[in-house]
Structure formats: structure tokens, C-alpha cells
Design a protein around this nucleic acid. Structure first.
Lengths: 335, 335
DNA sequence: TCATTTTCTGCAAACGTTTGCATAATTCGA
DNA sequence: TCGAATTATGCAAACGTTTGCAGAAAATGA
């Protein structure tokens, strides 16, 4: 009733399914005349190859699995856009799932993708992921895997990242050059390497500039706008108002930004603020935010390019490496 | 080398694959003791069912295809989030593709999804889609299809939308109540029904209020920020500066917003502005934008709920209907 | 004209499952 | 203790392809 098969075509033409198969894949063995007939009937009957059957036989799929913490997050959605873009042009399709920052869900998603026999996976881990066993299992089975942005250092796979520490260093140095001295850091979850690295960069810049590190100026929180708001609120309530903020990412920066405005403090005169990621919002707030341009779209593209290369060259086992993309500091009016 | 199969388990236990299959799916016919043994070996060998083979046999898949114009667009990425959320909890997986506003690519994506034998599709059409044949083909084959937001009126399928005309009407009436009289509309592509509807609502509000319709106050453009900027620029260059703007969506509103600021005009005193969609940015610009709250996340959820219902009840052929979700006007400081 | 080569087509097995049906193994009643 | 009823297992076909191999048909040469 539903889909026509190669057999329907064969029956209609009184030839064998094998010939039809070969005709459709333009095999040189089959006569041009037969090919034509087959193609016509195929069109006439609205034939679409059953990729499920093809995959079963050939043991290849053109599906790439993608797992991110949250699809709607600006950084990830544009990374996914980049992934889809390249995948599309290479004839791959992407299966997208989100972990919602939950470790369990990340594991479930991973096995779901394995069951679907995706050709490979691109992953940015959840903030509650403390173990990499589910990914190690992929590696053991020889399923190509590429991490981007949020990676697990211990695992020996390809990683597409930026130099978080160096970028953070540059951002904080910029604040220092602008004359800010009481610089607070709104940090992300301690579990994430990117957050650790950004914190490191912050500390290093302070020490480089001879500014003593003050534990009370590091406020840990999540990666969302609300976290930034809450963290800033804490600083204000504690009476330890800094003269500048380095936020772990843009949503956090924007949250802090709002709290600062509510407190009636002037940006950048009373408080300078630097974000991280170059989300679209940063250009739209007033004043626009200084931030680190994290090339989300390009990171997605790069990750999938690497993955496809791995998929299509299974024999030469390519040594995993860490690809570090450039991330520039974009200076705007908030500093 | 790669994946263990049911046969590996069978061989290891000296039983038949059929028994293993039944054991794993907890069939009552197989003895508890055998089940245990099977489960143990399955775990030991790291068995994951090959869903490709399962699908081929059962003729069912748990993949849902999603096609949107652009993944990174705020509205769509949060709709996709909603879709994934519900899909995940119902055991489905989503294959996401973007048309990039290209008709051809939309067609390619559609057939790619059909080849993968997705259980159903959720689509928001591209702005250059003028024909619905590729979707009609789905309907003819009995493949469940749900449109959301950007729909094709002529096709008899489920649609999840908001009342665009009514919402536009409310938005423009609000401007009128605020005292604005020279209201321009930055319209979207004439091909999209949502754009036509919003234009209609605009016209109707004017006529309702007895304000004569002025052709020169409708500027057609795309759906992006830059389009808003350009359209606003035209109005300014033409010397026909309105005292209020009703934009077809938020990005366009924000683009106009920036051009207005550049021109040194005060919002809302000299120019009022209303957007459409309630993108996150609208709360962050200064002043925050009045806009129509289009529940993207919920639209995604609703669409996939309908789709799953269609997928899981193929026998009772459910009559397609149009689901209209509520969209409230959110009044902020820009009007 | 017939043997030989070349060109084209079909048979059948395989991919990893599921499942109707047959049958082996076990349990039960008398 | 034996046949019947019950319980548990296996056989084999099927899902829609691909592909090695065999062999039919056509073309070639002498």
C-alpha cells in the first residue's frame, strides 16, 4: 500500500530485482535501454529507495547524531546550523537530541543513537556529566566521535574548541587595561572544563597584573541569564560590589547586566562588563557588550567536517587531535 | 567486528536466535531462567539492538523528520526544543533539517526524510515555497504530516498556528490607542501566509480606526534583522518617517529599532514600535519591545503531540484540523 | 557454421531482526 | 506408567536491498 519497492518495478517490467537495483545505481553491466525503462517505471510508481533496507545490507548509514545540552541556547543552535549545513552538502542527515544538562538523559540519548546505528556522533556534554564511560563505549566499538566546546579532557577523541583560558586571560587583561581593578568573575559549574579554563585565565590575568586574587570575587552559578542575575545580586547584597565583571558566558553577563541596571549603576563608568561567546544579544543591549567571539557556526562546521572524514576513512585510523579555533575579543561599549 | 547481534548471544548460549529475540522483548513464552541468561550475556557482550533491522522487519521507525527554514532562528530553535522534548519522552528521535528559505532544498530534505522512512514530518515552510506538491506526495502515501507557523493553506493537514491576523490587529490597535497615527508596516515576503495575515490585520485595524490606508507605509522585505534595518532606512530616505512601526517579526523590529536609534529618534516618544514573536532579544533591548508572544516552544510541543497521535493511530484516519494557539500582546516600553 | 568472447541478466545468499507454526521437553492427572 | 495437556524452544520465512557468481544471449572471428 505505502511504498513501492524494487520488486514492484521488477514485476512490472518482467525483469529481476537485481537488474533493477543495478539499473538504479547506474551499474555499467546493465544495458542503457533497460536502465531507461527502469528509471521511467521508477518515476511513474514514485519509487523512493528504502534506506533502511539499504543500510541493513550495506552496513552504512548517512545519519549523524548530535547531542547538545540545550537546542534553543544561542550558541548551540547556531552550532547545529553549521553542522546541518555541512552535513547536508555531504549527503548526511542529523539526528539532534538535547541532554537538558542531565547526565542520565545524555546516556539515554547516546544509546538511542547507537541503536539507530548513526555513522558518528558530535557531542557537547552536559554540565552534570562526571563520567565518560558512555562515550568510551563508543570509542571501543569504533564509532567516530567528535566533541565540541564542552569536552571531556581525558577521552582521546577529536575536540573542537577555542582556547578558553587564553581568551579569558585576554578578556580580563582588557578590563585591567581599561583601569578596572576590582574584577569579579561569575563562574560556571566546576564540572565543565570550559568553566575551569575560563576561571584559570581570569586568575592568571590578575596575577600577571599583580592584582591579588580575592576568593569572594568568584561566584559560581549556572550558564543561564538567571544565574548571572542571581550571582550579581549576591555581590550586591554582600556589599562587595566590584568595578568590573567577567562572566563565564553571555547569558550570564546579560543577567548580571540587568541586575546592575536595576541597581542604578552606570555601565561602563561604574561597572565594566565582559561576556563570552558573542551571542546575538550582546550587540543589542545598551550599551552593547564587550565579549569573546566564539565562532559557534564554524565550530559546528569544523566538528562535522572532521567527523565525516573519520566516517569515510575508517581504514586509516586517524589520530585524534584537538582543534583550537580562533576567538577574538570584541570590544564594545560595556568596558 | 563492531556490533554484537542476537545471533552472537544465541551461539554463546547454544540456543536459537528466536528465543533470544523473545527473551529480550520479555515474551511470556520464554522461561524466566532463559531470559536471565540471555540478559546477562547481552549485557556482557554490550548488545544494542539493531534498530535498522528491527525497522525493516516491523516497518516502523521512531524517527520524526523536522524541516524548518533556519535552525538558528530564535523562534525555530525553541520550537525544535519543544519538539525534541516531547519526542524524547515518547521514545522518538528527531531528524532536523533546514531549507535555508530555499524551495529546492526543502524538496530535497523532504525526499531524504522519506527515504529514511521517518514515521512522520513536522514542517514550517520556506519563504520561497510556492508549490505544495512535495507535501501532497506525502499525504498520498499516508505519511503523517503536521505544519506549524508557516503553513500552506490549501493542503488538508494538521496545522499548528496562532491567529496571525487577529494578533496583528491587536498589535496595531494598541499603537492606535497609544495615540500613534502614522503607522508603517514592515512586511514579510508576500508568499508566506503568516505575512499576508499580519498585513491583513494591520489593514483591518487601520480601517477599524478610520485611518486611511497608505500604500507607501507598507515596506516589503525579508524576515531578518537586516531587512528591518533596510526597510526603515527606506522610509527615512523617502522622507516618509512614520510615528510608529508594526514589524512582521522581532528580528525585523530590532533591525528597524537600530536604524531609528541611529537616526537619533526617541523610542517610544517619537517612534513607537511593535514586534512579533516575543524573541528573547525583545526583553533585552532598551527600551524593551512591545511584541506579540508567539509560543514557539508550545507550538513545537503541540505539533509533535498531534503527529505522534497520528503515527500511533494509523487505522482511525483522523480528520485534520487547524489548531490555533493563544498569542498575547505583551506591552513593554517601546510603545 | 560453430566455437569463443563479450555483454547482459538472474539466482540466491546475506544483512539482523520478528513471528507463525511445528515440535521437543516437561508437567500433570489418573 | 502412559497419554494428554502444557510449556518452552527452534525452524524458516519475511522485511527491501546489494552483490558474487553462474549462465543465457548476443556479438565476434575464422
Amino acid at each position: 500500500m505505502k511504498h513501492t519497492t524494487i520488486n514492484d518495478i521488477a514485476r512490472k517490467l518482467g525483469i529481476s530485482p537485481s537488474t533493477v537495483s543495478r539499473a538504479l545505481s547506474n551499474h555499467p553491466d546493465v544495458k542503457e535501454e533497460t536502465k531507461k525503462k527502469v528509471r521511467n517505471v521508477a518515476k511513474e510508481l514514485n519509487y523512493t529507495p528504502n534506506q533502511i533496507a539499504q543500510s541493513l545490507k550495506t552496513k552504512r548509514t548517512n545519519a549523524i547524531g548530535v547531542i547538545v545540552p540545550e537546542i534553543k541556547h544561542d550558541f548551540f543552535s547556531s552550532a547545529i546550523s553549521g553542522i546541518e549545513e555541512v552535513a547536508y552538502h555531504s549527503g548526511y542527515t542529523i539526528i539532534v537530541s538535547q541532554s537538558n544538562e542531565s547526565f542520565e538523559r545524555e546516556v539515554v540519548n547516546t544509546t538511542a543513537l547507537v541503536q539507530q546505528r548513526v555513522a558518528g556522533l558530535i557531542v557537547s556534554i552536559s554540565q552534570s556529566t562526571k563520567s565518560g564511560e558512555h562515550f568510551q563505549a563508543l570509542i571501543d566499538r569504533g564509532i567516530p566521535l567528535v566533541f565540541f566546546d564542552r569536552v571531556i579532557n581525558e577521552l582521546d577523541v577529536f575536540k573542537v574548541i577555542i582556547d578558553d583560558k587564553q581568551s579569558a586571560f585576554k578578556a580580563v587583561m582588557h578590563l585591567i587595561e581599561r583601569g578596572y581593578r576590582k574584577i569579579a568573575h561569575l563562574a560556571g559549574p566546576r564540572t565543565l572544563e570550559i568553566c575551569k579554563a575560563r576561571l584559570e585565565g581570569y586568575k592568571e590575568a590578575l596575577s600577571y597584573a599583580g592584582i591579588p586574587f580575592n576568593e569572594g570575587f568568584v561566584i559560581y552559578g549556572g550558564m543561564h541569564e538567571n544565574d548571572g542575575y542571581v550571582s550579581m545580586d549576591k555581590l550586591i547584597k554582600n556589599g562587595t560590589v566590584p568595578d568590573a565583571i567577567f562572566a563565564v558566558n553571555d547569558p550570564v553577563a546579560v543577567g548580571a547586566f540587568q541586575r546592575i541596571k536595576e541597581a542604578g549603576m552606570k555601565i561602563p563608568d561604574e561597572v565594566g562588563i565582559v561576556g563570552f561567546s558573542n551571542n546575538k544579544i550582546t550587540t543589542l543591549v545598551d550599551p552593547p557588550l564587550t565579549t569573546v567571539d566564539q565562532p559557534s557556526f564554524e565550530m559546528g562546521k569544523k566538528a562535522v567536517e572532521i567527523l565525516i572524514n573519520l566516517i569515510e576513512n575508517p581504514e586509516k585510523d586517524i589520530k585524534p587531535s584537538v582543534v583550537v579555533l580562533d576567538a577574538e575579543l570584541i570590544v564594545r561599549k560595556s568596558t
